[in-house]
Nucleic acid binder design. Structure first.
Length: 183
DNA sequence: AAATACCCCAACCGCCGCATA
DNA sequence: CTATGCGGCGGTTGGGGTATT
C-alpha cells in the first residue's frame, strides 16, 4: 500500500509527482510536435494530466534550457535588484535570468533571501519588509520597463550573501539530464 | 540510535487577462 | 456584445531530506 498513488487507470486526472515515464512521454511529444495547446497536448500525448500540469512540468523542469540549483552570486544580485524594482513579479524577473524559472526564483526568494533579510533586520515596530503579499502586487505594477520607486527594506544594501552549495546526489531520482540523454 | 525540528523544492490551486467563437 | 476556453501568474501547501538534540 505504498506505491500505488491511485492505480485507477481510468482516473481522469493524475496529480502529484511526475514519474520518469510521464516525463519521457511529455518530452518526446513536444520534441515531435512542439508546444501547442496544452490541454489537447496532454490528451494527445496520452498523459492523464491537466494541460496546466504539463505546462508547469515542462517550463519548470523539463525544458532543455532550464538551469537548476546553484544560483550564482550574480544571479542572486540580479534577483534582489529586480525584486527591488518590480516586487513579486517573478515571471518578469525570470525573463532577465536565462534558464531560471519564475517558480525557482520565487522559491529562492522565499527560502533564502527572505529569511536572510528577516535575520539581518529584525525590526518589530516597522511592518517591515517582505512586502511579500499585499503591498507588492499593488504598488509596483504599472508597466513593463518602468522603474517603480519600490523600496524594500534591503534597498541600498544589495549584496549577495554566501549560499550553501547543494550537493547533487540524486541517486534515488532521475535527473533531467538523464532524460535528455536517453536514446 | 532514535526522535524532532527545520529547510528546500516540486506541484497544485485560484484568479486574472486575452483571444476566439 | 457576450460567453467560453486557455494560458499565465502569484500564492500556498505537502513531502522528502538533512541537521540537530
Amino acid at each position: 500500500m505504498d506505491k500505488k498513488p491511485c492505480n485507477s487507470e481510468d482516473a481522469e486526472v493524475r496529480k502529484g509527482p511526475w514519474t520518469m515515464e510521464e516525463d519521457l512521454i511529455l518530452i518526446n511529444y513536444i520534441a515531435n510536435h512542439g508546444e501547442g495547446v496544452w490541454n489537447s497536448l496532454a490528451r494527445s500525448a496520452g498523459l492523464k494530466r491537466t494541460g496546466k500540469s504539463c505546462r508547469l512540468r515542462w517550463l519548470n523542469y523539463l525544458r532543455p534550457d532550464v538551469r537548476r540549483g546553484n544560483i550564482t552570486p550574480e544571479e542572486q544580485l540580479l534577483i534582489m535588484e529586480l525584486h527591488a524594482r518590480w516586487g513579486n513579479r517573478w515571471s518578469k524577473i525570470a525573463k532577465h535570468l536565462p534558464g531560471r524559472t519564475d517558480n525557482e526564483i520565487k522559491n529562492f526568494w522565499r527560502t533564502r533571501i527572505q529569511k536572510h533579510i528577516k535575520q539581518a533586520e529584525p525590526l518589530p515596530g516597522q511592518c517591515s519588509e517582505l512586502n511579500d503579499n499585499a503591498s507588492s502586487s499593488q504598488m509596483c505594477d504599472a508597466g513593463d520597463g518602468v522603474d517603480q520607486p519600490y523600496s524594500p527594506t534591503y534597498s541600498g544594501n544589495l549584496e549577495p550573501f554566501p549560499l550553501p552549495l547543494p550537493n547533487e546526489s540524486d541517486d534515488n531520482f532521475w535527473s533531467v539530464e538523464d532524460l535528455w540523454t536517453l536514446p
